[in-house]
Simulated assay, not measured.
Amino acid sequence: MNGEGSAERAAGKSRKLADGDDLLRGTAEQKLGGFYAITFGASLFAWDLAFDLGTHRTIFYYRRQELFVLSLVVLLSALLLRRRVHTHPWVLLFFLPPLVFQLARLVIPHPHGEVIATVDRVLAVATIAVVPVVAAIVVRLLAPNYAALPGRRLKVTVAAIVATVALLGFLTGYFNDHFLTCEDFIVAGEDPAPNCTHTKP
């Protein structure tokens, strides 16, 4: 009897706790539409990218390939769906550097010589330079609900949360020796960060 009474009291407390709380009742997402979906997805991507940048001071090759794939999809869709997708030609120019960079590496895998190496560096810089524009357009395509969020405050809140997560991801990666060990990287199948902590002699 005492056990049943305790269970009922606990269930009653849980119901009272959830009353009036959108997070506990799971109704916050319904009220805010795509806010949480966009923020969760963008924050996870931003953390991962910033953490890698913090640990290894570079953007890994597969991220560069993802940029190539995204650019290729946008360019091909604009070409093949030109009757349905109306865009200015100059907008598509932002998607060319990742594509040209990848194709150049296909033709010349390991650039040697001063001129070729210079062209390779220019393409690499151009690819990085167009990332903000490419990212902004891809976000609009992948998360159309972002533009539909009511009011500027919600849009700014999404950007602020993602930026905060990215900053924390970078700092966690930069100071990875406080959070992880070299063995953690190895178990995950990654190269240990240069400043990681060894736990085994």
Rank of each mutant, 00 (worst) to 15 (best):
E66Y: 12
R140G: 12
R57V: 05
N176M: 12
M1E: 09
H112R: 07
L123E: 00
D177I: 01
F179Q: 00
G151W: 07
K31C: 00
A104R: 04
V122L: 07
S71V: 13
R57G: 04
D52P: 12
T27G: 04
F60Q: 08
N145P: 01
V115R: 09
L92P: 01
G189M: 06
R140L: 08
H86G: 04
F60K: 07
T39A: 02
L49M: 09
L72M: 13
E183N: 11
A104Q: 02
T197E: 11
T199L: 15
N195Q: 03
A135F: 12
A136M: 06
G169W: 06
E4K: 04
T157N: 04
T27H: 02
A148K: 14
D19I: 03
R84Q: 10
T199C: 15
G173I: 09
F45K: 05
F51W: 11
V130Y: 13
A143Y: 10
H88I: 10
D184R: 07
L123N: 09
R140C: 13
F175A: 11
A28V: 03
R9W: 05
W90A: 02
R9A: 13
F45H: 09
L44G: 11
Y62I: 06
A11H: 06
N176I: 14
K155S: 01
A135L: 07
E8Q: 05
V158G: 06
G113P: 10
L79E: 06
Y62E: 13
H88Y: 08
E114D: 01
T87S: 12
L123D: 00
P111K: 10
L99M: 08
I38M: 07
A159I: 13
L171G: 03
R25A: 12
C196V: 04
F175T: 11
F35R: 01
E66A: 15
L167I: 15
L106F: 08
L75E: 01
Q30V: 05
R121N: 05
L180K: 07
S6I: 05
I128W: 10
L76H: 04
L81T: 01
K155G: 04
Y36P: 01
V125E: 06
R15L: 15
D191C: 00
D21H: 09
A124H: 15
V165D: 02
A42T: 13
D19Y: 08
Y36M: 12
F179L: 09
F94Y: 14
H110T: 11
F179M: 12
G3L: 15
R153V: 13
A148Q: 13
L142P: 00
L96D: 06
H198Y: 15
E183T: 15
I59D: 04
D19C: 14
L17M: 11
G173T: 06
G34S: 15
L93I: 06
F179P: 07
R64P: 00
I108V: 15
G5V: 02
S77M: 10
A78V: 06
P109G: 02
T181H: 14
H198C: 07
R140P: 00
V187M: 00
A126C: 04
I186Y: 02
G54K: 14
A117K: 02
L141K: 11
V85Y: 03
H178A: 13
D19A: 14
A147I: 03
E29R: 08
I186K: 09
V158E: 09
L103D: 01
